[in-house]
């Protein structure tokens, strides 16, 4: 029961952060690995699946407001898919401990950027 409440809270916070573009994904992965002791690659997989419905919800809201630049989306997306295949292959191949460390480094970088003062 306790863990049920925890997972509710984790889901809600991830959703809020994702809607704000604060990298909600990072939060869910952190929660899963540090509090639920789920392996790194499994947590990443859960996060990827988690993001799909959230992104669709957000997109429907944004598409109505004509906020999407389709030309750039197509360009970035096409190359992104190629990158994703390579990234996944490596993630599913390398050792979980190493993946965990890499994710830690990513968090360190993103976290520092969050703390940095914004220009505007």
């Amino acid at each position: 029961m306790n863990s049920f409440i925890m997972s509710c809270i984790a889901g809600i916070i991830s959703g809020i952060l994702a809607a704000m573009g604060l990298g909600g994904g990072g939060f869910l992965i952190i929660y899963l690995t540090l509090f639920e002791n789920i392996s790194q690659s499994e947590a990443q997989g859960i996060n990827l699946i988690f993001f799909i419905p959230i992104a669709i919800t957000a997109l429907i809201m944004h598409a109505r407001g004509k906020l999407i630049d389709w030309k750039f989306a197509l360009k970035f997306g096409a190359l992104g898919l190629v990158g994703a295949i390579l990234g996944c292959k490596i993630a599913l191949f390398i050792d979980g401990g190493l993946l965990r460390k890499l994710f830690g480094i990513l968090l360190l970088i993103i976290g520092s950027f969050q703390l940095k003062k914004e220009k505007k």
Partner: peptide, 20 residues
């Protein structure tokens, strides 16, 4: 546009962070 590639790579490798 090559940033798109790296974003995809990062997102696939670490499950998050592409948007950043």
């Amino acid at each position: 546009s090559t940033i798109g590639f790296f974003a995809g790579f990062l997102n696939g490798l670490l499950g998050a962070g592409g948007g950043m």
